[in-house]
Design a protein around this nucleic acid. Sequence first.
DNA 1: TCAAAAGTGTTCGCTATACACCCATGT
DNA 2: ACATGGGTGTATAGCGAACACTTTTGA
Lengths: 183, 183
Amino acid sequence: MWSLLGDMIRPDEDLDKASYRILKERTGLDDVFLEQVHTFGNVKRHPGGRVITTAYYSLININDHQLNFPDNELHWHPVSEITEMAFDHKDILEICLNQLRNKVEEHPVVFNLLPKKFSLRELQSLYESILETKLDRRNFRKKFFLTEWLVDINELEQDVPHRPGKLYKFNHAKFPHKSHGIS
Amino acid sequence: MWSLLGDMIRPDEDLDKASYRILKERTGLDDVFLEQVHTFGNVKRHPGGRVITTAYYSLININDHQLNFPDNELHWHPVSEITEMAFDHKDILEICLNQLRNKVEEHPVVFNLLPKKFSLRELQSLYESILETKLDRRNFRKKFFLTEWLVDINELEQDVPHRPGKLYKFNHAKFPHKSHGIS
DNA sequence: TCAAAAGTGTTCGCTATACACCCATGT
DNA sequence: ACATGGGTGTATAGCGAACACTTTTGA
C-alpha cells in the first residue's frame, strides 16, 4: 500500500522549514506552495511506535516537475484512484483534500499549478479537477474576471487544433504579499 | 504577561486526549467542546528550549464553571483586553479566535456556551460577542429559524425586567452525530 | 406611565445559476 | 466542410442587508 511522503523533523529546525526540506530531499521540488493542515497524534496510528505527524499539502505542477528520484519509490497518483493507504494516510489525504477544496474557493492558490501563461480553459479544467465537478463556462469566466486575479497579456494559445484562446497571467499586483505561494 | 494553558503530552497518550486531560487537570473542566487549530513549531518560539505546540480551543460557559484552582494562576480574561502575551501566545490566540469565528458561521458550536434553555437574545448576544459586531435582530431570528438549529420549548423567560422572550433549546435531532460537541 | 426588550415583513441589491448561438482555427 | 473549443449576455431565483412599529412585562 502507498503512503504519503514524510520524515522526521530535526531538533533545531522550524516545523514549516522541515516540511520544505523533506519535500525537497525526497522529490527535488523547491519553492512551492505548502500549507499546514492538521496534526495527527493517536498513539496507535503507527505500528512501529509513537509518531506524531503534522500534515501539509503542496501544489505542484506535475508537468513542470519530474520526480527525479525513482529509487525512493515516489510516484504520482490521481487521488480519485487511491482506495487504500498505509497507516492513517488515507484519513490524512481526505482531510488535506478537503482543506484544499475549501481553500481554492476563496484564495488564488491554484496558480501554483499553472504555467506563467495559461488559458481560461486550463484554469477551469484545474478547478474542475480539484473540485471534482463540472462548471459552466460563461459563469466561470464572469466570476474570475470579477476577482481581478487575472491579467490579459494579449497573447493567444499556439498549436491548438481549434480556435486559440487568450492567455492570461496571475495578477501579482493584486496580491503583493506571498500568502498565495506564487513567487 | 499572561500565557495560555498548556502542558506536555505523554508518550502513551493520544494528542486529542492530552488536550482534554490538560484542560481538566488545570481547570477541573470536563466534557467540553475542544477543537484542534494549528501546530506551532518554530525553533525559537520558547526561550527554554524546543517546544512544539498544538493549539486547541474550547468553548466553556464561564458562568457554569468556576475555576476552582486559584493557586495555578488561571484567570478568565476578555480577549478584547489582551494586548500582550508571553512567547508566541498572542499569535496562537489570534489564530484560534479566527478559527472560532469562521466555525460559528456554519456550525452550531455556540450552544456549548449556553444553558439548556436560552432566549434568542442570549443567542444573539453570544454571536455578537464572538464576532465583535452588531447584528440586526430581525435578520438574525429569520436566519436562525431557517437553520432549524432551534426547538421552541414553549416557555418564557422568568424574572426579566421587561417583556419575557420565548425559550429555545438546541435541536439535537438535527445533529445526531457529536461533531458539534454538545452532549 | 414609562422603560426595556420581544416580536414581526417588506424591499432592494447582489450573487449564483441556467442556458444557446456565432466565431476562429486546424484538419 | 467539419470538428473543436473560444467567446459572449440575459433572465431568474435565492440570500443578505437595511429598516420601524406594536406588544408585553416589571418597576
